[in-house]
Amino acid sequence: MADLILTPNFDSADDFYAQLLASHEGLGKDESDALNARLILVLANHIGDAEVLSQALKTATLPGD
């Protein structure tokens, strides 16, 4: 059974974060929300594994939420 990776796994964390912010640059709230929604779907499909996705959804709910 595949496990969700919860230790640092980025090739370059700062570069990714900068790219993420850049892709939202100049977008209104609605457009940004839509972009994020599409991004979630793109990433989720790439992962594919139902167990990992389920763990990811749980992880996104912070302890105490």
């Binding site: 929300d33 839509a34 929604a37 599409r38 979630i40 779907l41």
Partner: peptide, 10 residues
């Protein structure tokens, strides 16, 4: 609705 529209756009 946001997620639904994202699915359709993609």
């Amino acid at each position: 609705r946001l997620m639904r529209d994202a699915v359709l756009d993609l």
